[in-house]
């Protein structure tokens, strides 16, 4: 099951990177997110899988598609990427993978057996307890962040008639 979901994630990501059409890219992002949701279920984080599906697949991808339809940038196609930036970018991405791979290979992490580790994240009660005791301050900060983001979006999307005149 892990291999199946990992393939979904990786091929979705490749689709996002290489697709010419932005709508196809958004659909590939959706496939990738479905794979990540499956991985979260495999890791016993059922609530996070549900929230990810709801927030990302339901809201974020829909918002992307909405903006793509709204802007209608089809007459805006530029010629493809130049060779030098492409080569440099591939080398940089490979360096990220190599660096992290060396970290994984040389890390002396104790390797727990998954069956022996107790599942703590399987009930809503645990999440609620953590959110309202240990992480109470971050929750409030996140609430303010959402408020500020909402106000910012309203200000940004307002038409600047008075600024133009």
């Amino acid at each position: 099951m892990f291999n199946l979901f990992a393939l979904l994630v990786v091929f979705g990501a490749i689709g996002v990177v290489v697709s010419k059409n932005v709508v196809h890219g958004a659909m590939s992002l959706l496939v990738s997110l479905l794979g990540v949701t499956g991985l979260f279920v495999l890791l016993d984080a059922y609530l996070l899988a549900f929230v990810l599906l709801l927030v990302y697949a339901g809201a974020v991808v829909a918002l992307f598609l909405f903006i793509v339809m709204l802007l209608d940038t089809h007459g805006d196609q530029r010629p493809g990427v130049k060779h030098l930036p492409l080569i440099a970018s591939v080398i940089t991405g490979a360096l990220v993978v190599v660096g992290a791979a060396s970290f994984i290979m040389h890390a002396r992490l104790p390797e727990p057996i998954l069956a022996n580790v107790p599942v703590v994240g399987d009930s809503l009660k645990h999440y609620a307890y953590q959110l309202f005791t240990t992480y109470l301050l971050p929750v409030q900060v996140i609430g303010f962040l959402l408020l500020i983001a909402m106000i910012g979006v309203i200000v940004l999307s307002r038409k600047h008639e008075e600024a133009a005149s």
Binding site: V81, I104, L114
Partner: peptide, 26 residues
């Protein structure tokens, strides 16, 4: 359930991060 090692998840995470990074660059 088949036990998958932690390294597999981390490797997948790194690959996905590198793909996203590549996309941002190119």
């Amino acid at each position: 359930m088949i036990s998958v090692s932690l390294n597999s998840y981390i490797a997948l995470s790194v690959i996905l991060f590198a793909l996203g990074f590549l996309g941002v660059l190119i």
